[in-house]
Design a protein around this nucleic acid. Structure first.
Ligand SMILES: [Mn+2]
Ligand SMILES: [Mn+2]
Ligand SMILES: [Mn+2]
Ligand SMILES: [Mn+2]
Lengths: 233, 233
DNA sequence: ATATTAATTTAAGCATACTTAAATTTAATG
DNA sequence: CATTAAATTTAAGTATGCTTAAATTAATAT
């Protein structure tokens, strides 16, 4: 006999699952397999809470999980994640392009809205936006069928050699303070910048943007991705 | 020593509270003071769950509540409710006018989105919509400061005399089946209709819309509000 | 290989929001 | 006014997701 579970639990469960799956997916997408502690860090919760949830996600068929071993998404988990990323990035694009919300604010707003937006709404927004390939931070937007546009080849800014000029094509969007800071110094999508120097002392980098000099830390540089311009001085 | 409560609890608590306060407010707005059983019915949960929550809402200062006696909103509860209604109705308007979502679907979509939409987003949508006074179902939209536009004087369709002609100015939007049905027979905002006859047998009403005859039940008529046209046959 | 450290899991317990069944209070009826 | 019926609350128990502290397993260093 199947026990009916009330609406609020389903909502809560879905929000939680979406948050976990999102963290797992995004990490794997950039840095490879994720570990328990990393999830706990990213979500600011205890390790015990993570272990608990890993068991539930495994029970629900979204991840493969064996005690003390790694974590990976099942086919269903992967689909779930891609669909969530689609919702998130289209919402960001909508907020940025249609609502004119500031660049550094759209991620957090989308983070809250994504849990409630229906498939129909998302599809309509996609149409209004004329089926964009990338979100406001340069991340690819999965299609209705789950196809993901090729990520633009990009170099992490801290790896770029002195003297070279490049254009910003992607930025990690998950930290509000970081986003606010870089946009305040003029680093947004398509910003052209030149690396003047790498300081060995603190690994910081001296840039030139629109003729003005700027020093950014190694950590900041490592969250910005650029495409080198060919045939520049 | 204040105990820190984690994010998901705050989300869950807020969604629940918003749902309860919304039901209490909307009922009072139309039919007067609400009772415990009505809340349980409207939300499809047990009476015990309602009692439980009433104690918590009272503890949190959103309602006045004494055992076995009535339920009413405090000042804070009222503000909370008006702000929620504002978010809900502006989202409906946005979905209807800008996203072009079908009339009968916007209520449910807004119901889910309202929990996640920030004040800033709502204010921007309001501006895009040029500060509308009424939502797609004819309900007034509270302003940023909580001011509520005068409700248009309207007559419940089942009270309208035979022979009179009127225009639809408001419709109760909370039931999806009802909304789908009336829109399928051509009853939407601003629809002009004439009452042909009241059948005593089942209290149903015979209407004429765009020249075509239509019979609707008393219950359907009682959820539609109209404004009589002066100087008509 | 053994000892130490780090990562992860288990155990016990709490808050939220529900459920059903039983007890209580209020309202309606004759 | 006493009796019955309806509404509401209390009691006991469940699921979700979290916490801290203790136990276990895996990784690292000597
Ligand atoms: Mn984002
Ligand atoms: Mn993004
Ligand atoms: Mn509505
Ligand atoms: Mn409405």
């Amino acid at each position: 006999m199947l026990k009916l579970i009330s609406k609020i639990y389903l909502i809560m469960k879905n929000i939680s699952q979406e948050d976990y799956i999102s963290v797992i997916y995004k990490h794997r997408d950039t840095e490879g397999l994720i570990r328990s502690t990393t999830i706990a860090d990213r979500m600011s919760i205890s390790n015990a809470a993570v272990t608990d949830m890993l068991r539930k996600l495994s029970r629900d068929g979204l991840i493969y999980y064996t005690k003390y071993k790694g974590i990976s998404l099942t086919g269903e988990g992967e689909e779930f994640a891609v669909n969530l990323v689609r919702r998130h990035r289209l919402l960001e694009m909508f907020l940025y392009k249609i609502v004119n919300m500031p660049w550094e604010k759209v991620h957090e707003e989308a983070e809250r809205l994504e849990h409630g937006a229906s498939e129909e709404l998302i599809n309509r927004l996609e149409e209004m936006l004329e089926f964009p390939d990338y979100d406001p931070h340069g991340d690819p937007i999965p299609s209705k069928t789950g196809k993901i546009p090729q990520a633009r080849s990009a170099l992490r800014l801290d790896y770029m050699e002195s003297g070279k000029t490049a254009v910003v094509v992607r930025v990690n969007d998950y930290d509000h303070e970081f986003m606010t800071y870089i946009s305040s110094v003029g680093i947004i999508m398509d910003t052209e910048l030149t690396v003047k120097n790498h300081l060995k002392f603190d690994n910081s980098i001296v840039l030139s943007i629109h003729g003005k000099e700027l020093n950014i830390s190694h950590k900041i540089a490592s969250n910005i991705f650029v495409q080198e311009k060919e045939g520049e001085a």
